[in-house]
């Protein structure tokens, strides 16, 4: 079962604006060798594209791992607006 299949089980109320933002996208490509966001995020929000890291905030499970796991503290992390984001059915 892929992570996409897993996220498909969840309910999200997706906001138009992302609650996650790379403060300086160039840092991720030019300065970050480890790129732990690609591994630690349980929802695979961060993906390595050709020349950048994309942020697929729609499936974010709001755990906070990327914020504290980023070695360059390069992620501006907010909670989604009230009522938006993941909605647990069972919890």
């Amino acid at each position: 079962m892929t992570v996409e299949d897993k996220l498909f089980l969840d309910r999200f109320n997706v906001d138009e604006d992302s609650h996650l933002r790379l403060i300086d996208p160039d840092t991720c490509i030019e300065k970050c060798r480890e790129q732990p966001c690609l591994y630690i995020c349980p929802a695979n929000v961060y993906k390595l594209e050709k020349d950048r890291i994309s942020v697929n905030y729609e499936g974010c499970l709001e755990c906070g791992s990327c914020r504290i796991g980023c070695p360059h503290f390069n992620i501006d992390w907010r909670f989604p607006r009230g009522g938006y984001g993941v909605r647990h059915k069972f919890g």
């Binding site: 897993k6 089980l9 969840d10 349980p42 755990c63 993941v86 647990h88 059915k89 069972f90």
Partner: peptide, 30 residues
């Protein structure tokens, strides 16, 4: 990757009989 680790756990010989035939309904992280 956390989601790969839980997939491996599901296949473990001591765990898979417990969840056999079950339908995943939700996936969470905390």
């Amino acid at each position: 990757r956390p989601y790969e680790m839980i997939e491996r756990l599901k296949l473990h010989p001591a765990i898979s009989p417990l969840i056999k035939g079950g339908k995943p309904r939700e996936y969470l992280a905390h």
